[in-house]
Design a protein around this nucleic acid. Structure first.
Lengths: 194, 194, 194, 194
DNA sequence: CATGAATGAGGTTTCATTCAT
DNA sequence: AATGAATGAAACCTCATTCAT
């Protein structure tokens, strides 16, 4: 990676961070390219030098963010027996949300909308993340650790949604509460599944 | 109520309905006043004759919608013993979300944002709705029906959030699944509380 | 004049007064029909019941106001010898401006504009008022009381303009100064003519 | 000043010129941003790229225009004895009004309004311009060239107002009359002061 | 690789006018 | 004789995008 490429990567990273924070706070439409450039401390033209459009920036952002989450999920369950694996997923999700708080907030706001440009992208990415959870749940059902009548996909999306909303609620409205607390509540909540 | 007042009320109602659907689908900023007027079948000027601004329309919408929800909560728990009361709240929330699907979707998208104009309004309204749940939970703790170490406000906001996300997920991604199913899942999920 | 007619006249008078004040303060374009109705304490529709349009209301206003001024001018000079007549005109103008302060302010703001709808009306009305002054000045020149080389129309419009600007400046910026003072200054100023 | 800055300055200057002419003819409210952009031969967005709002453009215009006038006043009286100084001020004002006819017309229309957004700005700027005249008049009183009982501020604002109204009346209604003529009339009018 | 002035389509808002009551 | 809800043209303003530097 030469000097130019490094500089460029750095600029792109700064733009991602600026965009994710602003969109989490205000939403995609309410966030302007001017805002993003200002917070990233670059000129407006630089945004367009690095991304084809505001929407493209956002889509790359989504892909990037959910990619990281999926990786974390994969890493968390590797080699664990089913029951432990579900608990590990919850811990991983919480860790992730704490680390990328803005991205989580943004997901919570965008994930259940309909009729948006990037809807299709989002559904696909959702499948990817929830799919990882579903695999783990299915393994649990197959091994008899989880009830045989459990609807795997339903359970997986419920797990994902509940984790997201409880964790974001925690970060937004009760940021002083220790994460272990939240983890305990969540594990308690999903006992039937986990 | 004379003819004029009735006509005006009717117009406002139509505007509420149009706005709630569009904002649920696309978000506040992406929804234009033109869209709203078109769907409500009134002229654009009529929106401004009835509401001071797009934001004011939205704030009144929030107040109206959450007001209804709070009323439903109050009616649902009236006279019930604690354990039944929590289950009744969940049923009421589901009923409400099914009936006002768009409003619920909109709440899910806006409730955990920060830095929006109506943020303050929303926090207050949230307090109102969650406060109603909290009263019921507290009664359960006091009567010994619920664990003594339960953090009442935390439990209340978790209940609210979980119900919202599970129900909206159901309506958006698995609309064919019967509501009883969803209710059973939810009651299962929150067994520790309910 | 029956009851209905009286009521109607009263409404029109109230609308004139409201309009003149608002237009003096803010100008014609910046004054809305809503403003006028509000200050006159009638409904908006009533403005249109009494006047064909906002512009028509304003034109009638101009005609009415300048008509009164011209009458005052005529009455003031009646039977006076030239030198006294000019002084009487100045006094009459000051009296008028004090009495109809808003109308004077409005005239000062509109009289030297170009390119407005009512421009033609205004030029005509201006001719009428300045014409009265001109007659008096001409009589003074003819009788030898005023210099023979005086350009009558120029002197007349200068007299009118100077009176207007000095008197309005007085009312707006030094309302506590007694009118006799202003009159003395004005007579001093225009000594060469008067 | 680099190329970009120059281009921007040029655009701002063109906008000032377009705005001043249109507002002089029609008034602030009746002049649209579209008109201004059209006359300045830029896109509408460019107006907003260079000025925060239509009002802000107008306020900067006022500041700019009255700044120039005040400079001219200062330059005109420099080093002159009191009597000559007052005559020089009148000449300077006439020169200025002839050169910036539209701005003068605009001032005449706006200066004696009340209740407009930029009222406060205008009062301050008026103070600045009239203050310069007042200094000269005071010097004349102190040196005994002007009557000891003259109210300095009153005389200064009368001088300013009279000059403005006579000169604008000249430009609007008798543009063919030579300026020397007007200057002579004005000096005649204000003989008591000058 | 980056910049920032300029653009114009499209958004929000205002307001003179109409009309059913 | 008066009202006020509704209208839509036209105003102000925003903002994603382009492009010359």
């Amino acid at each position: 990676m030469d000097g130019r490429t490094r500089r460029r990567e750095d600029t792109r990273q700064r733009l991602f961070e600026a965009a994710v924070e602003l969109i989490a706070e205000q939403g995609f439409s309410a966030t302007t390219v001017d805002d993003i450039a200002l917070r990233a401390k670059v000129a407006k033209g630089t945004v367009y030098y690095n991304f084809a459009s505001k929407t493209a920036l956002f889509e790359e952002l989504l892909r990037h963010g959910i990619g990281l989450l999926t990786e974390d999920f994969r890493a968390a369950v590797k080699g664990l027996p089913p029951r432990d694996a579900v608990a590990a997923l919850i811990r991983a999700q919480l860790e992730y949300i704490r680390r990328y708080r803005s991205f989580a907030q943004l997901l919570l706001s965008e994930m259940w909308r309909t009729n948006r440009e990037w809807q299709q992208t989002l559904v696909l990415l959702r499948e990817e993340a929830i799919g990882t959870i579903a695999e783990t749940v299915r393994a649990g059902v197959d091994s008899g650790d989880l009830p045989a009548d459990l609807d795997v996909r339903v359970a997986a999306s419920a797990l994902f949604g509940v984790g997201l909303v409880v964790a974001v609620d925690w970060l937004v409205f009760q940021p002083d509460r220790p994460i272990e607390d939240v983890e305990r509540s969540l594990l308690g909540l999903v006992r039937r599944v986990a």
